[in-house]
Amino acid sequence: MDGNILDPDGARERLAAWKGRIEQLAADTQTMSSRLQEVRVTATDPGGLVEVTIDSTGALVDLTLSGRMESTKPDVVSRTIMETLAAAKNQLADRSQEIIADTVGTESPAARAIAESVGNHLRSEPARDAAATPESDAEEGFEDRSFLERG
């Protein structure tokens, strides 16, 4: 009829449409969840010293150090690991937000809240300023800067 809520046929149609949207949202949310759980990200520092792999939660699942590690100061190795891990988490946040947009969209407040929460959970703060790190005497054959400090 005229969309009157008291119209039984119209009410059934609106209810059926609402049920269809809810069922589609549930299916999209399940797809999103499955795809998010499968994500793994591998990142390598530009100098090829470190490769890290993280799972969908941002947890480190693999770490590979190249032979260059032997000629690099330990503090540089550890800093490079942490910087590469942070870069991997940022990539994971980007990929997760793409999956959210592809599956449930970005139109609803709930989808935007999920994407924001994922980003806040995974993204790291910018790397610590190199000027705040005390300089040590350079040892022959040791690389004394992390990949982010190098041009």
Rank of each mutant, 00 (worst) to 15 (best):
G48T: 10
G48K: 02
G48I: 08
G48L: 10
L49Y: 04
L49A: 07
L49D: 06
V50H: 05
E51W: 03
E51V: 01
E51R: 15
V52T: 07
V52P: 08
T53K: 05
T53I: 07
T53L: 02
T53C: 03
I54F: 00
D55R: 02
D55P: 05
D55M: 04
S56M: 00
S56G: 06
S56Q: 07
S56N: 14
S56D: 12
T57Q: 12
T57D: 09
G58E: 03
G58T: 15
G58K: 02
G58W: 10
A59F: 12
A59K: 13
L60I: 11
L60N: 06
L60M: 14
L60E: 15
L60V: 13
L60H: 05
V61A: 06
V61F: 05
V61C: 07
D62P: 00
D62V: 09
D62S: 12
D62G: 12
L63W: 10
T64Y: 12
T64N: 13
L65F: 10
S66W: 06
S66D: 11
G67T: 14
G67A: 13
G67Y: 00
R68G: 14
R68D: 15
R68L: 12
M69L: 06
M69T: 15
M69F: 05
E70D: 11
E70C: 00
E70L: 12
E70I: 08
S71C: 00
S71W: 08
T72D: 03
T72W: 08
T72P: 05
T72H: 04
K73Y: 09
K73R: 12
K73C: 00
K73W: 08
P74S: 08
P74R: 07
D75Q: 08
V76M: 01
V76F: 01
V76A: 01
V76G: 03
V76W: 08
V77L: 10
V77F: 04
S78Y: 04
S78W: 10
R79C: 02
R79L: 11
T80W: 06
T80A: 10
T80M: 08
T80Q: 11
I81T: 07
I81A: 07
M82T: 13
M82Q: 13
E83L: 09
E83Y: 13
T84R: 05
T84A: 05
A86Y: 05
A86Q: 09
A86I: 02
A86C: 10
A87I: 06
